[in-house]
Design a protein around this nucleic acid. Structure first.
Length: 794
RNA sequence: GCCGAGAUGGUGGAAUAGGUAGACACGAGGGACUUAAAAUCCCUUGCUAGCAAUGGCGUGCGGGUUCGAUUCCCGCUCUCGGCACCA
């Protein structure tokens, strides 16, 4: 046998697997249970980076392991291929986004093949293919018909660099765009929205049932921001009539402590009340000053400002007291009702405001620590018949007495999903001559993206400039009809892609019911932490909306989700061209081979946790050395060895590790086995075969070469059953027992596995080192845990 | 500020139904082989005292429970992630 030549071996087996169609996965297998292992698909940037290797290569270890465990494993791959980078590249280099995108896909297919993953390429999907986006459009049309998609006017986030609207989820905490990095502007605009808020309760409630890490659940809950409270009307009686101010509060138990009411400066009622106030000018000036401040300024300065509506009083419905009405910038126009009841004694913001403007403060919760404001729940005081009750028990009755109602509000806003750009899925809507939108009927889908467009962004939708699109619209729908010219956010494309993997070539429907029942929900979804409040939330919403309309059978798309971390540069910083610390995986693969790169990434640390690991080229070389060690061991196959106990405990331990994504410790246990075999001077064939099987998910090419080449098997190691351990072969006759004196290890003694407490104590007394400690002392207590520890307390 | 996750050698990390802290790997030091280098093999490698045998200390910090705590409990510090004038 030749030495380990990764170039030859990896090419040979990749070709062979393709030739054998080894990775094509049927929807149903006569004897195997299905397992759908999903990892986020990639954007065709034109270059596979180390992060892709981590995402696909290490997840493939798990997929291959499950395949050997006897599951019918689907591990698909595809491209999320609409999006701005294609347009930007086309603008920069000439050409058009489609050509750029498909050339990149072609290149990346080759790079993805070099990973040696068991991708089922027969199910490949590309979201910019008309055969794919036809179904994205079909879903949108369904949503439109059922009112889940609607045209609405809202405050939107405008990205001045990409010249398009982006969703709330796509604005980073510092107010910049997730894609372009530009400072986002807010403007009022009409656009297409998806009613994710209708599903806010379900999206929150159903988190409970999912096997997801707590941090992902917590982030989604915070993003949804469900808050249970009550809406209560405070009545303003003016010459023009009676004007209720509806406030939202989570603390109706503090109603007796309300000393003023605050409206957001933008609140529509302010306009109505303005004619009755005596400081008209001041109010208008304040509104103007608030309007001119950017969101960022409003966020940064926590100094609260406001002006009173002089002459206006609102009546507290619980006790009939008339209180002043203010407008202030600390009340947000688009949360709750845009109006609050202020309880300075029990709310920090109201307290700060009341202090600044010398408004009265009324304690209504008994504070055990004499703190003002005291914001905890507690016993009510100065609250008529409610005094003496606890906050929680009083709330319902107080809401009832005040004539309010229990409500829930949410932080999450509807998903603004139309984009004023070219390279995206056309929104399947046409407008009749009166301007009323209609969904394009299914027989006209896919509603293709026109080619005759100058896609340079200027802030208006490029599709408006397509003659072909307008002619097509009039030809099909009649004179005077016009097409929708906005395209969809690419997060729409990726919100349902996993269904298409299951039935990638179906011409009748996006996915046949049988395929959905066969595979969904996905058994594992591996992805990046940055998608927690974007893709993961959107796709759950899509699934729920489709479920509500009867199009998919399950309420959740994936029951197990794990986020992985990032691979950092060797300097510990995030890889970036500007820092010059980018590792090119192609180069690494050329140098040490795909198997070494896969194993190195698996060995860095536990997978499926959000933890970042710096790249270490020396560590990679160490992995290559391990494969070579296995290679050398293959030349020392001998008739028998003494490795049975170790081999079988290794199988047991590695199997346990694989189930928990602890590929790092699984590998270390293989190394221990190989080191032991080396020390032994060789290894028996049947043990070496087990080693190759354990190695197969990690180093699929090398293991295949050893299995089919050296060990001369007819079929692939990847179709072998995962090895089982035999307890009877694990047993040893004696073991090393650590002996503690007063809880500190002082010696180790070799004892038979069947030893009793008296026998072990007798052995310990004879032991030289231990005798130093025990001689002449009373033994107060002896703790003996068979197989673990002997502790002598003196 | 609130919510979530975490903190272990020079580095990545290992060990949690409480039972030898530092597996495995990298790096470092020493040695063998070699004309030399690479590759490979052997030894050492938490800190500290000692020639050694052996001892003291040690898992972010301070307490507690226990024969025994990286693991459990209480109180802090710091790091990362999310939310944040959300009523």
């Amino acid at each position: 046998m030749q030495g380990y030549n990764h170039h030859e071996i990896e090419k040979k087996w990749q070709d062979m697997w393709e030739h054998e169609r080894a990775h094509e996965t049927p929807d149903h297998h006569p004897s195997k249970e299905n397992k759908f292992i999903l990892t986020e698909f990639c954007y065709p940037s034109g270059n596979l980076h180390v992060g892709h290797w981590y995402a696909f290569g290490v997840t493939d270890i798990y997929a291959r392991y499950q395949h050997m465990r006897g599951y019918n494993v689907l591990f698909p791959v595809g491209f999320d291929s609409f999006g701005l980078p294609a347009e930007n590249a086309a603008i920069k280099n000439g050409g058009d986004p489609r050509t750029w995108t498909y050339a990149n896909i072609e290149k990346m297919r080759g790079q993805l093949r070099s990973i040696g993953a068991r991708f089922d390429w027969s199910r490949e999907i590309i979201t910019s293919d008309p055969e794919y986006y036809r179904w994205t459009q079909w879903m949108f049309a369904e949503f439109f018909k059922k009112g889940i998609a609607y045209r609405g006017s809202a405050m939107v986030n405008w990205d001045p660099v990409d010249k398009t609207v982006i969703a709330n989820e796509q604005v980073l905490p510092d107010g910049t765009s997730e894609r372009s990095g530009a400072l986002v502007e807010r403007k009022e605009m009409s656009q297409w929205m998806l009613r994710i808020t209708d599903y806010a309760d379900q999206l929150d409630d159903d988190l409970e049932s999912l096997d997801w890490p707590e941090d992902i659940k917590a982030s989604q809950r915070a993003w949804i921001g469900r808050s249970k409270g009550a809406e209560i009307d405070f009545i303003v009686t003016a010459a023009s009539g009676v004007h209720p101010i509806t406030i939202f509060t989570t603390r109706p138990d503090t109603l007796y402590g309300v000393t003023y009411v605050v409206l957001a400066p933008e609140h529509p009622l302010v306009e109505t009340l303005l004619e009755h106030v005596t400081n008209n000018q001041e109010v208008r000036a304040y509104q103007e000053s608030v309007r001119s401040r950017s969101d960022l300024e409003r966020q940064q300065s926590k100094e609260k400002t406001g002006v009173p509506l002089v002459g206006i009083y609102a009546q507290n419905p619980i006790n009939g007291i008339q209180i002043p009405v203010w407008i202030a910038d600390y009340v947000l126009p688009d949360y709750g009702t845009g109006a609050v009841m202020a309880v300075p004694a029990h709310d920090e913001r109201d307290f700060a405001f009341a202090q600044k403007y010398e408004l009265s403060i009324q304690m209504v919760i008994d504070s055990p620590i004499e703190a003002v404001p005291y914001t905890e729940h507690g016993t009510l005081i100065h609250s008529d018949e409610f005094s003496g009750m606890h906050s929680q028990e009083a709330q319902d009755a107080m809401v009832a007495k005040a004539g309010g109602k229990r409500t829930t509000t949410y932080r999450i806003r509807d998903w603004g999903m139309s984009r004023q750009r070219y390279w995206g899925c056309p929104i399947p809507i046409v407008y009749d001559p009166e301007g009323v939108p209609h969904a394009i009927p299914a027989e006209h889908l896919p509603w293709t993206l026109p080619d005759d467009v100058d896609h340079t962004p200027d802030g208006t939708a490029p599709l408006a400039r397509s003659r072909e699109l307008h002619e097509r619209t009039e030809r099909i729908f009649g004179a005077g009809w016009t097409p929708e010219v906005e395209t969809m956010d690419t997060f729409v494309d990726s919100s349902w892609y996993f269904y298409r993997y299951l039935d990638a070539h179906n011409q009748e429907t996006f996915c046949a019911s049988d395929a959905m029942h066969a595979w969904m929900p996905a058994d594992m979804y591996m992805g990046g932490a940055e998608h927690t409040t974007m893709h993961v939330l959107y796709s759950r919403f899509f699934n729920k909306a489709l479920h509500a309309l009867g199009h998919v059978p399950h309420p959740e798309p994936y029951t197990v989700r794990r986020n992985r971390g990032l691979i950092l540069g060797t300097d510990g910083n995030k890889m970036s061209k500007s820092k010059g610390n980018v590792i090119d995986p192609d180069e690494q693969v050329h140098y040490v081979g795909a198997d070494s790169v896969r194993m190195y990434l698996a060995f860095l640390g536990p997978f499926g946790v959000t933890h970042n690991y710096p790249w270490d080229t020396n560590g990679l070389v160490g992995m290559r050395r391990f494969i070579e060690k296995v290679w050398r061991l293959s030349e020392k196959i001998q008739p028998s060895d003494n490795l049975a106990p170790l081999v079988h405990t290794t199988i047991r331990d590695i199997t346990h590790d694989m189930e928990r994504f602890k590929f790092n410790t699984a590998l270390s246990k293989m190394m221990i086995l190989v080191n032991a075999a080396e020390k032994e001077g060789g290894i028996a064939r049947h043990h070496f075969e087990i080693l190759v099987q354990l190695l197969a998910p990690f180093a699929p090419h090398a293991a295949e070469e050893l299995w089919r080449g050296l060990l001369d098997h007819d079929s692939s190691v990847h179709n072998e059953a995962w090895p089982l351990y035999d307890e009877t072969l694990m047993a040893t006759e004696e073991y090393m027992l650590p002996v503690q004196i007063n809880g500190k290890v002082r010696a180790q003694i070799t004892v038979p596995t069947t030893i009793t407490e008296e026998e072990v104590l007798a052995l310990a007394r004879q032991h030289e080192t231990l005798a130093q400690w025990t001689d002449g002392k009373d033994i107060k207590k002896v703790i003996f845990v068979q197989g673990k520890i002997l502790n002598i307390v003196i």
